[in-house]
Amino acid sequence: MRRRISLLLISLTIMGSVFARGVYQAPMDFLAESFHGEVPESSLLLIDTSLEASVKQILGHRYESQRIRYWREEGRTAWILQEVGKTKPITVGIVVNQGKLERVKVLVFRESRGWEVRYPFFTDQFIGASLTESAELDKTIDGVTGATLSVSALTRLARLAILLHKESEK
């Protein structure tokens, strides 16, 4: 038994090739897909003092930059946002339509744990969610065992995207 298991371990090790980080879709491709090939001109949203308080309420800290780029077509906006899961930032593409989440997609996942959150069985839970008055999602998002921090990061970004969408409409 010992020899067979050792051989299996060696075989599995050799099967590995050059490591490729989890880049699942380039942001540009996400935008093209979201706007059916015609990506509108982008705009920048400034996180001013009043908005910063709301952002901090959702993230628990400031966003990494003070200007956030977005793309708008009528009542739809698209956002490329980042938030740290455990130790590494997760890059997520989010489309908000009339204040509700239309699309959430993990574009780059750099953590070594919690990779399941990139699949539609998890991200599809966000579709249709909007923000309550207390800036929470109005839908329950079930987590993924062992991926608590990644789930939490994605949920924060989903809330942030709706907040920013509303702000961009002012």
Binding site: S43, L44, L45, L46, I47, D48, L51, R69, S168, K170
Partner: peptide, 11 residues
């Protein structure tokens, strides 16, 4: 739109 800066940098 006080806090919006339009015109993007290169994508």
């Amino acid at each position: 739109m006080p806090n919006m800066i339009s015109k993007a940098l290169a994508l």
